[in-house]
Design a protein around this nucleic acid. Sequence first.
DNA 1: CGGCAAACCTGCGAGC
DNA 2: TGCTCGCAGGTTTGCC
Length: 280
Amino acid sequence: MPELPEVETVVRGLQPVMTGQTIAKVDVRRPDLRIPIPKDFARRLEGQQVAQVRRRAKYVLIELASGDTALAHLGMSGRIFIEPQNPEPPGKHDHIVFTMADGTQIRLNDPRRFGLVEIDRTDALDQHRFFVHLGPDPTGNGFNGPALAAALKGKKCAIKAALLDQRVVAGLGNIYISEALFESGISPKRLAGAVQGSRAEKLASAVQQVLARAIAAGGSSLRDYVQPSGELGYFQHQWAVYGREGEACPGCDCDIARTGGVQRIVQASRSTFYCSRRQR
DNA sequence: CGGCAAACCTGCGAGC
DNA sequence: TGCTCGCAGGTTTGCC
Protein backbone atom coordinates (compact mmCIF):
# COMPACT_ATOMS: atom_id res chain seq x y z
CA MET A 1 0.00 0.00 0.00
CA PRO A 2 2.53 2.56 0.93
CA GLU A 3 3.91 5.21 -1.34
CA LEU A 4 5.97 8.15 -0.18
CA PRO A 5 3.18 10.01 1.72
CA GLU A 6 2.19 6.91 3.68
CA VAL A 7 5.81 6.18 4.56
CA GLU A 8 6.28 9.80 5.64
CA THR A 9 3.22 9.47 7.87
CA VAL A 10 4.60 6.25 9.37
CA VAL A 11 7.89 8.01 10.12
CA ARG A 12 6.17 10.96 11.80
CA GLY A 13 4.15 8.54 13.90
CA LEU A 14 7.24 6.58 14.96
CA GLN A 15 9.28 9.64 15.90
CA PRO A 16 7.60 10.41 19.24
CA VAL A 17 7.65 6.79 20.45
CA MET A 18 11.18 5.88 19.32
CA THR A 19 13.39 8.98 19.31
CA GLY A 20 15.73 8.98 22.30
CA GLN A 21 14.28 5.71 23.57
CA THR A 22 16.07 2.40 23.95
CA ILE A 23 15.01 -0.71 22.05
CA ALA A 24 14.73 -3.42 24.69
CA LYS A 25 13.84 -6.42 22.51
CA VAL A 26 13.43 -7.34 18.85
CA ASP A 27 11.46 -10.47 18.11
CA VAL A 28 11.82 -11.75 14.54
CA ARG A 29 8.81 -14.04 14.21
CA ARG A 30 9.13 -14.77 10.49
CA PRO A 31 12.43 -14.14 8.74
CA ASP A 32 11.36 -14.96 5.17
CA LEU A 33 10.36 -11.58 3.79
CA ARG A 34 11.15 -10.76 0.15
CA ILE A 35 14.77 -10.64 1.25
CA PRO A 36 15.49 -12.79 4.33
CA ILE A 37 15.90 -10.75 7.50
CA PRO A 38 19.64 -10.55 8.35
CA LYS A 39 20.64 -12.96 11.11
CA ASP A 40 22.22 -10.20 13.19
CA PHE A 41 19.25 -7.82 12.83
CA ALA A 42 17.84 -8.27 16.35
CA ARG A 43 21.24 -8.43 18.04
CA ARG A 44 22.40 -5.14 16.52
CA LEU A 45 19.21 -3.35 17.61
CA GLU A 46 18.64 -4.68 21.11
CA GLY A 47 19.88 -2.42 23.89
CA GLN A 48 20.54 0.45 21.48
CA GLN A 49 19.19 3.97 21.70
CA VAL A 50 17.35 5.48 18.73
CA ALA A 51 18.97 8.73 17.59
CA GLN A 52 16.39 9.59 14.93
CA VAL A 53 13.72 8.16 12.64
CA ARG A 54 13.61 9.42 9.06
CA ARG A 55 12.63 8.54 5.51
CA ARG A 56 14.49 8.06 2.23
CA ALA A 57 12.18 7.46 -0.77
CA LYS A 58 9.85 4.69 0.48
CA TYR A 59 12.26 3.44 3.14
CA VAL A 60 11.86 4.01 6.89
CA LEU A 61 15.25 4.59 8.51
CA ILE A 62 15.80 4.00 12.22
CA GLU A 63 19.16 5.51 13.08
CA LEU A 64 20.82 4.29 16.26
CA ALA A 65 23.31 6.00 18.55
CA SER A 66 25.58 2.99 17.91
CA GLY A 67 26.25 4.08 14.31
CA ASP A 68 23.97 1.46 12.77
CA THR A 69 20.77 2.23 10.87
CA ALA A 70 17.90 -0.21 10.46
CA LEU A 71 15.87 0.28 7.30
CA ALA A 72 12.47 -1.06 6.36
CA HIS A 73 10.51 -1.11 3.11
CA LEU A 74 6.82 -1.91 3.41
CA GLY A 75 6.35 -3.42 -0.06
CA MET A 76 2.73 -3.65 -1.17
CA SER A 77 0.99 -4.70 2.01
CA GLY A 78 3.30 -3.73 4.86
CA ARG A 79 1.93 -1.86 7.87
CA ILE A 80 3.30 -0.65 11.17
CA PHE A 81 1.29 -0.67 14.38
CA ILE A 82 2.04 0.96 17.71
CA GLU A 83 0.79 -1.06 20.67
CA PRO A 84 0.63 0.29 24.20
CA GLN A 85 2.04 -1.55 27.23
CA ASN A 86 0.61 -5.05 27.84
CA PRO A 87 -0.73 -5.53 24.30
CA GLU A 88 -2.60 -8.46 22.79
CA PRO A 89 -0.33 -11.26 21.52
CA PRO A 90 1.03 -10.66 18.01
CA GLY A 91 -1.06 -11.82 15.05
CA LYS A 92 -0.36 -14.06 12.09
CA HIS A 93 1.36 -11.45 9.91
CA ASP A 94 3.21 -9.54 12.65
CA HIS A 95 6.67 -10.56 11.43
CA ILE A 96 8.80 -8.31 13.63
CA VAL A 97 7.95 -6.98 17.10
CA PHE A 98 10.09 -4.21 18.61
CA THR A 99 9.62 -3.64 22.33
CA MET A 100 10.88 -0.31 23.63
CA ALA A 101 12.29 0.10 27.14
CA ASP A 102 9.00 1.66 28.31
CA GLY A 103 7.03 -1.38 27.11
CA THR A 104 5.57 0.18 23.96
CA GLN A 105 5.58 -2.25 21.06
CA ILE A 106 6.06 -1.50 17.39
CA ARG A 107 4.92 -4.24 15.04
CA LEU A 108 5.74 -4.75 11.39
CA ASN A 109 2.81 -6.51 9.75
CA ASP A 110 2.97 -7.65 6.11
CA PRO A 111 0.59 -10.32 4.76
CA ARG A 112 2.18 -10.55 1.33
CA ARG A 113 5.75 -10.35 2.63
CA PHE A 114 6.92 -8.12 -0.24
CA GLY A 115 8.56 -5.86 2.32
CA LEU A 116 12.10 -6.10 3.64
CA VAL A 117 14.32 -4.95 6.47
CA GLU A 118 18.08 -4.50 6.60
CA ILE A 119 20.72 -3.12 8.94
CA ASP A 120 23.90 -1.34 7.92
CA ARG A 121 26.40 1.26 9.09
CA THR A 122 24.86 4.72 8.92
CA ASP A 123 27.90 6.23 7.22
CA ALA A 124 27.73 3.59 4.46
CA LEU A 125 24.02 4.03 3.69
CA ASP A 126 24.54 6.10 0.55
CA GLN A 127 26.49 3.20 -0.95
CA HIS A 128 23.92 0.62 0.12
CA ARG A 129 22.58 -1.43 -2.80
CA PHE A 130 19.02 -0.24 -2.08
CA PHE A 131 20.00 3.43 -2.22
CA VAL A 132 22.83 3.70 -4.69
CA HIS A 133 20.57 3.81 -7.75
CA LEU A 134 17.81 5.99 -6.30
CA GLY A 135 17.03 9.30 -7.95
CA PRO A 136 16.25 12.49 -6.04
CA ASP A 137 13.57 12.53 -3.37
CA PRO A 138 10.66 14.57 -4.78
CA THR A 139 10.23 16.41 -1.49
CA GLY A 140 13.87 17.56 -1.45
CA ASN A 141 15.96 20.29 -3.04
CA GLY A 142 17.37 18.02 -5.75
CA PHE A 143 14.01 17.70 -7.48
CA ASN A 144 12.70 20.40 -9.81
CA GLY A 145 11.74 20.94 -13.45
CA PRO A 146 15.23 21.01 -14.96
CA ALA A 147 16.37 17.98 -12.95
CA LEU A 148 13.30 16.02 -13.99
CA ALA A 149 13.74 17.05 -17.64
CA ALA A 150 17.35 15.88 -17.55
CA ALA A 151 16.36 12.49 -16.05
CA LEU A 152 13.68 12.00 -18.72
CA LYS A 153 15.74 13.16 -21.69
CA GLY A 154 15.98 10.54 -24.42
CA LYS A 155 13.72 8.06 -22.63
CA LYS A 156 11.56 6.16 -25.11
CA CYS A 157 9.00 4.77 -22.68
CA ALA A 158 5.73 6.42 -21.67
CA ILE A 159 5.95 9.08 -18.97
CA LYS A 160 3.90 6.84 -16.65
CA ALA A 161 6.49 4.06 -16.88
CA ALA A 162 9.38 6.52 -16.46
CA LEU A 163 7.92 7.87 -13.22
CA LEU A 164 7.65 4.33 -11.83
CA ASP A 165 11.42 4.05 -12.29
CA GLN A 166 12.92 4.95 -8.90
CA ARG A 167 16.13 6.10 -10.62
CA VAL A 168 14.20 9.00 -12.16
CA VAL A 169 12.38 10.09 -8.98
CA ALA A 170 12.50 8.07 -5.75
CA GLY A 171 9.25 7.62 -3.88
CA LEU A 172 6.45 7.85 -6.43
CA GLY A 173 4.21 4.84 -6.94
CA ASN A 174 1.27 3.83 -9.05
CA ILE A 175 -1.35 5.99 -7.33
CA TYR A 176 0.45 9.31 -7.03
CA ILE A 177 1.80 9.02 -10.59
CA SER A 178 -1.78 8.98 -11.91
CA GLU A 179 -2.62 11.87 -9.60
CA ALA A 180 0.40 13.99 -10.55
CA LEU A 181 -0.09 13.43 -14.29
CA PHE A 182 -3.72 14.46 -13.92
CA GLU A 183 -2.75 17.53 -11.92
CA SER A 184 -0.22 18.57 -14.57
CA GLY A 185 -2.51 17.89 -17.55
CA ILE A 186 0.01 15.50 -19.13
CA SER A 187 -1.16 12.27 -20.78
CA PRO A 188 0.30 9.11 -19.17
CA LYS A 189 0.98 7.87 -22.71
CA ARG A 190 3.20 10.78 -23.65
CA LEU A 191 6.77 9.83 -24.56
CA ALA A 192 8.89 10.43 -21.45
CA GLY A 193 11.65 12.11 -23.44
CA ALA A 194 9.11 14.63 -24.74
CA VAL A 195 8.45 15.97 -21.24
CA GLN A 196 10.88 18.87 -21.29
CA GLY A 197 10.93 22.56 -20.54
CA SER A 198 7.67 23.96 -19.24
CA ARG A 199 5.98 20.55 -19.26
CA ALA A 200 8.70 19.20 -16.96
CA GLU A 201 8.31 22.26 -14.74
CA LYS A 202 4.60 21.69 -14.54
CA LEU A 203 4.97 17.99 -13.80
CA ALA A 204 7.60 18.57 -11.12
CA SER A 205 5.42 21.05 -9.28
CA ALA A 206 2.36 18.79 -9.66
CA VAL A 207 4.34 15.94 -8.07
CA GLN A 208 5.37 18.17 -5.16
CA GLN A 209 1.86 19.48 -4.68
CA VAL A 210 0.12 16.09 -4.80
CA LEU A 211 2.58 14.61 -2.31
CA ALA A 212 2.41 17.61 0.03
CA ARG A 213 -1.39 17.44 0.07
CA ALA A 214 -1.34 13.70 0.82
CA ILE A 215 1.19 14.13 3.63
CA ALA A 216 -0.90 16.97 5.09
CA ALA A 217 -4.00 14.75 4.94
CA GLY A 218 -2.09 12.05 6.84
CA GLY A 219 -1.23 14.45 9.62
CA SER A 220 -4.48 16.36 9.84
CA SER A 221 -7.02 13.56 9.84
CA LEU A 222 -5.42 11.64 12.69
CA ARG A 223 -4.31 12.48 16.17
CA ASP A 224 -0.50 12.37 16.04
CA TYR A 225 -0.62 10.14 12.93
CA VAL A 226 -1.86 7.16 14.94
CA GLN A 227 -5.27 5.64 14.37
CA PRO A 228 -7.26 4.19 17.28
CA SER A 229 -6.14 0.72 16.11
CA GLY A 230 -2.53 1.80 16.58
CA GLU A 231 -1.95 1.71 12.85
CA LEU A 232 0.40 4.26 11.34
CA GLY A 233 0.45 5.72 7.88
CA TYR A 234 -3.00 5.13 6.47
CA PHE A 235 -5.66 7.76 6.23
CA GLN A 236 -8.73 8.90 4.33
CA HIS A 237 -7.54 9.50 0.79
CA GLN A 238 -9.07 11.88 -1.68
CA TRP A 239 -7.81 10.90 -5.09
CA ALA A 240 -8.91 12.83 -8.15
CA VAL A 241 -8.65 10.01 -10.71
CA TYR A 242 -7.08 6.92 -9.12
CA GLY A 243 -9.68 4.15 -8.85
CA ARG A 244 -12.37 6.33 -10.42
CA GLU A 245 -12.83 4.64 -13.79
CA GLY A 246 -16.03 5.81 -15.47
CA GLU A 247 -16.63 8.67 -13.05
CA ALA A 248 -16.79 12.27 -14.19
CA CYS A 249 -13.41 13.92 -14.46
CA PRO A 250 -13.15 16.39 -11.58
CA GLY A 251 -11.16 18.80 -13.75
CA CYS A 252 -13.48 19.34 -16.67
CA ASP A 253 -17.23 19.65 -17.09
CA CYS A 254 -17.39 17.29 -20.05
CA ASP A 255 -20.34 15.03 -20.79
CA ILE A 256 -19.59 11.56 -19.38
CA ALA A 257 -21.79 9.83 -21.96
CA ARG A 258 -19.61 11.24 -24.74
CA THR A 259 -16.15 11.19 -23.18
CA GLY A 260 -16.45 8.13 -20.92
CA GLY A 261 -15.16 10.13 -17.95
CA VAL A 262 -12.03 8.86 -16.21
CA GLN A 263 -10.37 6.10 -18.25
CA ARG A 264 -8.44 3.10 -16.97
CA ILE A 265 -5.63 1.72 -19.12
CA VAL A 266 -2.82 -0.74 -18.38
CA GLN A 267 0.79 0.37 -18.77
CA ALA A 268 3.83 -1.65 -17.71
CA SER A 269 1.21 -4.10 -16.37
CA ARG A 270 -0.11 -1.52 -13.88
CA SER A 271 -3.39 0.40 -13.96
CA THR A 272 -3.31 4.03 -14.99
CA PHE A 273 -6.28 6.37 -14.52
CA TYR A 274 -6.60 9.59 -16.51
CA CYS A 275 -8.86 11.99 -18.39
CA SER A 276 -8.15 11.89 -22.12
CA ARG A 277 -9.71 15.29 -22.64
CA ARG A 278 -7.82 17.17 -19.96
CA GLN A 279 -4.47 15.32 -20.26
CA ARG A 280 -2.46 15.72 -23.47
C1' DC B 1 20.57 -1.04 -22.78
C1' DG B 2 15.18 -1.02 -23.30
C1' DG B 3 10.88 -2.85 -22.56
C1' DC B 4 7.91 -6.05 -20.99
C1' DA B 5 5.96 -10.08 -18.50
C1' DA B 6 6.43 -12.90 -14.71
C1' DA B 7 7.61 -13.80 -10.14
C1' DC B 8 7.47 -13.15 -5.22
C1' DC B 9 2.82 -13.77 -1.55
C1' DT B 10 -1.90 -13.25 0.69
C1' DG B 11 -6.42 -11.15 1.10
C1' DC B 12 -10.54 -9.27 -0.55
C1' DG B 13 -14.53 -8.22 -3.28
C1' DA B 14 -17.38 -9.47 -7.24
C1' DG B 15 -19.85 -12.74 -9.58
C1' DC B 16 -21.79 -17.16 -10.18
C1' DT C 1 -23.12 -19.87 1.95
C1' DG C 2 -19.24 -21.05 -0.71
C1' DC C 3 -16.34 -21.31 -4.58
C1' DT C 4 -13.35 -19.19 -8.37
C1' DC C 5 -11.45 -15.30 -10.55
C1' DG C 6 -9.31 -11.03 -10.91
C1' DC C 7 -7.12 -7.54 -8.80
C1' DA C 8 -4.08 -5.01 -5.37
C1' DG C 9 -0.34 0.89 -3.33
C1' DG C 10 6.51 -2.56 -5.08
C1' DT C 11 10.63 -4.29 -6.85
C1' DT C 12 13.63 -7.66 -9.04
C1' DT C 13 14.68 -10.94 -12.56
C1' DG C 14 14.90 -12.96 -16.82
C1' DC C 15 13.81 -13.06 -21.53
C1' DC C 16 13.55 -11.12 -26.22
